[in-house]
Structure formats: C-alpha cells, structure tokens
Simulated scan of single mutants.
Amino acid sequence: MFQISFYVPEIKLELVKNANPTIEHLDKLETIKEYKVEMICASNHLSSVISAMKSAHP
C-alpha cells in the first residue's frame, strides 16, 4: 500500500481530472488557497495511478 498526496488549487477543485498547472500566467509566482488530496493505493495499481496522474497534469 502507498499513500499518494497532491495539492489542488481551490479554483480548480472541480477540475482535478483535467488538471492545468497554471492559474493565470506562466512563469509568474502566485499565492492561492489549495486543498490537499490524499489517497491510499494498492501496490498492484500504483503504476497505472501514477501514469493517470502524469497524463492529467503535465
């Protein structure tokens, strides 16, 4: 079993499945409210879960 954690900006909370890593402008530091998402993943699903997360969030 593995624990996976990541942060989601409040304004993007409903769009986690189609993540876009920018909020307003590229290469600009921004401070925003975020939510931490945590999940437990069985070892036999870890590879596919990580692949799905990478494909959703470049």
Rank of each mutant, 00 (worst) to 15 (best):
H45D: 14
H57E: 11
A52Q: 06
A56M: 14
E24R: 04
I4C: 07
N18G: 08
E34M: 06
E38P: 01
E10Q: 04
L29V: 15
H57W: 13
V16N: 01
S51Y: 07
S51N: 08
L46E: 06
S55T: 15
C41Y: 02
H25P: 00
E24T: 14
A42V: 13
T22R: 01
S5W: 01
L26K: 02
C41K: 03
P58Q: 09
D27S: 08
S47L: 12
N18M: 09
P58L: 14
L46P: 00
F6Q: 01
Q3K: 06
F6I: 08
Y35I: 13
V8M: 01
C41T: 14
N20M: 08
P21M: 10
K54F: 11
M39K: 03
K17A: 14
N20S: 09
I23M: 07
I40T: 11
S48W: 02
K54P: 01
H45E: 14
S55G: 06
A56L: 12
M53K: 02
A19H: 08
S43N: 11
K12P: 00
D27I: 12
E30A: 08
L29S: 09
E30P: 00
A19E: 10
F6M: 07
Q3M: 09
H45I: 14
T22L: 09
S43A: 14
A56N: 13
M53Q: 03
K17R: 04
M53H: 02
I32L: 03
Q3E: 14
C41W: 01
S43E: 15
F2T: 10
K12V: 05
Y7T: 12
E10C: 05
N20Y: 05
N44M: 07
V16A: 07
I4H: 02
E38W: 02
